[in-house]
Design a protein around this nucleic acid. Sequence first.
DNA 1: CTGTATCCAGCCGGATACTG
DNA 2: CAGTATCCGGCTGGATACAG
Lengths: 113, 113
Amino acid sequence: MEIHKRSPCPVACALDIIGDKWTILVIRDLALGRQYFKEFLASPEGIATNILTNRLQRLKDAGIISALPDPGPIGRFQYRLTQKGQAMQAMIEAMAEWGLRYIEGTSKRLDPI
Amino acid sequence: MEIHKRSPCPVACALDIIGDKWTILVIRDLALGRQYFKEFLASPEGIATNILTNRLQRLKDAGIISALPDPGPIGRFQYRLTQKGQAMQAMIEAMAEWGLRYIEGTSKRLDPI
DNA sequence: CTGTATCCAGCCGGATACTG
DNA sequence: CAGTATCCGGCTGGATACAG
């Protein structure tokens, strides 16, 4: 899963990581407090399990999320944004503002966990 | 080229338009003052001609760019950001800042036209 | 249950040929 | 030159089966 750098442009390099229809949504969910595989699956966009696995792996490789074993009885991971991941919130917020302003039928509230 | 809306989330809806590795780069180029097919092709990432045609069409359909016949002798179009497109600059700037801060080997300056 | 892997249709996109 | 179309290998992602 090695990333090929197309140019030194920070925008292009960011797109090499997050340039698809799903990655940012996972980060959005994490920013909203979701932490578990099941919670990401429950988001209204309906990400497929194999895609979610793939994106979690890529984000971990990129240092944007961490996965720590959940203390609870179920063998699962607790996913969290690293500082590098948290720093993406400004960008996501800018996307949200643009969408709200320019795309009809959008609304800010997402179903609670 | 109809867009299927996955959810009312403004982030998800924005991604339905710009969620790939090339679209944002075209908008970046437009924001930097590039206006012609040839200029987009000359960007260091090396977009293919068929992909560029496809993205220009999509962006036009989405109301993010306009294409007006160039007054010069060559039969070509002059592409420009609409207001809706210009409003994406805050988001792109946030991406650039994130990339500069968190991805090694990135630098802000792009070759001039 | 948590997550991974596999199947497979369809889209993406690089190379290239083509039209005007 | 400006832009489009076509070929075709490889990736994406939905459905589903699978493993712990």
